[in-house]
Write a protein that binds this DNA or RNA. Structure first.
Length: 151
DNA sequence: GCCAACGTTGGC
DNA sequence: GCCAACGTTGGC
């Protein structure tokens, strides 16, 4: 079982939206490195739900991957904000997974607080200039982050 | 609103 | 295939 961190702008899709829906597709990822990580996802994996581009940014809760990766057809929809004009049914490089709400942290674990935690030096989220929206998390990093979020 | 960092595009 | 210009991400 693997661990992941996935970013979403809460104005578009937040931990509360996932809680209300219980289950939802995680789609709209349009970066190849992130897509490659999504290809490795398996049902039963868990992920940290990160709120980005908000005040303050940080970890909001936990969800579970509940489907295998599948083609992200939102890329084909001209009305979709993540429409990819170069994608077609024959050439659809983007992937989505279905995710399920697990829990919301009692309080957001803010990025500024995450930076203060020891043992996260390798976390891509904290590395300068990193903009990955989907990244793998080690079990050690997972333990540090979920423990801090529960405190 | 600013801007650093990075990815993508397109001319050559 | 290089690389300058441009667009996007996302923290501050």
């Amino acid at each position: 079982m693997a661990y992941w961190l996935m970013k979403s702008e809460p104005d578009a899709f937040s931990i509360d939206d996932l809680s209300a829906a219980d289950q939802a597709p995680w789609d709209g990822v349009r970066n190849y490195q992130a897509r490659n990580f999504m290809r490795e996802m398996r049902p039963g994996d868990h992920f940290l739900f990160y709120h980005s581009s908000c005040q303050p940014p940080g970890l909001a809760g936990i969800g579970e991957i509940v489907s295998a990766p599948y083609p992200d057809s939102t890329a084909l929809d001209p009305q979709n904000p993540y429409h990819d004009p170069k994608a077609s049914t024959e050439r659809l490089p983007w992937m989505a997974v279905d995710v399920r709400f697990e829990r919301k942290f009692p309080a957001l674990l803010a990025l500024a607080d995450i930076r203060q935690l020891a043992g996260l030096e390798e976390l891509p989220l904290l590395q300068k200039g990193n903009r990955l929206s989907v990244m793998p998390i080690t079990s050690e990093q997972w333990a540090i982050l979920t423990t801090a979020a529960q405190a």
